[in-house]
Design a protein around this nucleic acid. Structure first.
Lengths: 353, 353
DNA sequence: CGTCTTTACCCACACGTTTCCGCGAAGAGC
DNA sequence: GCTCTTCGCGGAAACGTGTGGGTAAAGACG
């Protein structure tokens, strides 16, 4: 058995209450006893037991981040940002994936009940709001990329529609008239928004969307779409894939078929995955503000946790979608800088890279 | 306050002990009472409190994975694998980074004490074994890519030296005689092993390593090395970068300087990051078995946890390094398949892709 | 010196579980 | 019918903390 607060108290010749106060920095314990406690703790290498502390205080200093899977383009960057935030706030991070099924959510919630103070739940499913409404939210929760807020849980989203519109506008400026969209999974909310935004902007800008090709976010789906387009009699002038994965596959299929990009067909994606800089030609894409999204989610969560039990002022349940950044590279613009030039860290609006 | 086991007991008209037994599936409670408990639990939507359970049992069903940072090439894949394992064993995953400094380890250990049953600690620092020896290991721990085991904690490593030797042998087979190595950070154990393995194999194969260029795993370092090599009078025939990041930077600098790859200079890396397939030319590299590494680490850990308190048979403290796979692409071999072809999932030995 | 406030500390309970021990009842063996 | 085991369940003690209430000592003030 590890050494406990009682051992420290005994060695220091004080009560456990005094030890607890010293350890937690509460005032009300002075030089003599304080000194003894510190010395005893150091000598015994005492480390407070997190579970016991959690049971007593009701706080775990841990938040959970639940992702639909561990693949997405965001995953890596999101975790990195959240780790930063957690570290800054002295919190820990519990991560788990839903293995693609939102139905896993209740199980995971049950598994971590009493182990976390809050939950960041990424739920980019079209019916996430309805499905999530069933769950009993036992701790403060914030939703990422969900269709809508659920109860007290706000949905912090990126501006998928706006990003797609940026691509449409970019196409329009280049004079491309006939375009095609490679859609994401039917049940994916981000993908639906991207499709919606692209169509709306295209119509507004006087472009015609010849087709919507069904996709599932996979590189393979992009390849199939590219092959199909290459073999078609009347090719579109530009194609917007709902994510970079599919755009990459599309680029590859077009190259294999001998179709010149961007001279014959321009290609753009969404996500700005690391690979996008390295395709031939480099991929024009939309960069989502995932770090900012993680930051806002975390900040809201710690605020909600600290407010817990206090006045129940409901914060704005639905936040403004976070703006995206268009990254222009060689796959859409013949005049774009040569393939080897790299994107820096653009701050706002469209960027040439 | 959330509802507790007592509420369930009261509603079901039984004792908390009975409820506990039913919830945990222990036998010794039959039809009548069992039925009532189940009904009450369902009606009250009772969920056991993890912290209380942890305090009582000493088990948290959670393991921690501590990474030096959240950037590395492994990070993503490792987490994915561990999440799979954790899910399969009904465990949770607590992830945290050391923010680059091994000195953070004690703090993080203290932070999570009593919150996890075991730790997977990735510590690719040359002196990790000495530094770690100070820590009081309060829970079973397994080290990843550390120089050596520490106490009961085994080090599960990949065969860095062997992978580097694979590159050297590949160079030799292609008839390249004069080679250069771009080294990783001086304090990085993986990098040191790669350098050692490359040098040893080169000597054995009759190649001369003209130079060791200092690097730090960053793309920028690779660019600088590439620029330097391009401007040099007597160029090496092939260069092996200690990681793909630097190899990518090197490729870019060589292209910018008009040096043909692989015809004038061949380039190889290590890690097989996703980007490697998409550089021009695609990058020859060494793929580490990180999924397998994660699996072995996890399995060892749960075994150690279950053995806890039982017989203290020390398992093999140092495991065999896990073999790597050489992935041959266009950056080294003029005869390699065209840039657009992709690597499948090679099973063993050298692979053409 | 007596009273009142402040300070510094201790006692003991609470947090929500699990689990050891024990007890009554029921069944088995004679 | 009596003892002996088995079974089903309840009582209560942990597990390691935090913290509210209480209390003695010390100091301030008359």
């Amino acid at each position: 058995m590890a050494i406990s607060i009682r051992d420290v108290a005994k060695l220091a010749g004080v009560s456990t209450a005094t030890v607890s106060r010293v350890i937690n920095g509460s005032d009300g314990v002075t030089g003599a006893a304080r000194e003894a406690v510190l010395r005893a703790a150091r000598e015994l290498k005492y480390v407070p037991h997190a579970a016991a502390r959690a049971l007593s205080t009701g706080r775990t200093r841990t938040i959970a981040v639940l992702l639909p899977d561990m693949h997405g383009a965001f995953f890596s960057e999101l975790i990195r940002e959240l780790d930063q935030c957690a570290h800054a706030h002295g919190q820990s991070l519990l991560v788990a994936s839903l293995h693609g099924r939102l139905t896993e959510a209740p199980k995971v919630f049950a598994l971590i009940h009493g182990q976390v103070d809050g939950v960041i739940l990424m739920a980019p499913f079209v019916d996430a709001d309805r499905r999530l409404a069933q769950l009993p939210f036992t701790v403060p929760t914030v939703l990422l990329n969900a269709p809508d807020s659920v109860g007290d849980a706000p949905a912090i989203t990126i501006d998928n529609a706006g990003g797609a519109a940026q691509v449409a506008q970019h196409f329009a400026q280049l004079g491309y008239k006939e375009v095609v969209h490679i859609a994401g999974p039917a049940d994916n909310f981000d993908a639906a928004e991207r499709a919606r935004g692209f169509h709306a902007a295209a119509r507004r800008l006087g472009m015609t969307v010849q087709r919507d090709i069904k996709g599932n976010y996979s590189e393979e789906a992009g390849r199939e779409a590219g092959t199909y387009l290459a073999g078609r009699g009347r090719r579109p002038r530009a194609v917007f894939a709902a994510n970079d994965n599919m755009a990459v596959g599309c680029l590859e299929a077009l190259a294999a078929a001998g179709v010149a990009v961007p001279d014959e067909v321009a290609v753009a994606g969404f996500d700005d995955i690391p690979i996008a800089r390295f395709t031939t030609p480099p991929l024009t894409t939309v960069r989502p503000p995932v770090a900012q999204q993680g930051l806002e989610a975390f900040e809201w969560l710690v605020a909600a946790i600290n407010r817990k039990g206090r006045t129940r002022i409901r914060p704005s349940p639905r936040t403004q979608p976070l703006p995206t950044t268009l990254i222009v590279r060689g796959s859409t613009d013949p005049a774009a800088v040569p393939p080897n030039a790299r994107a820096g860290v653009p701050k706002v609006g469209a960027v040439r890279a």
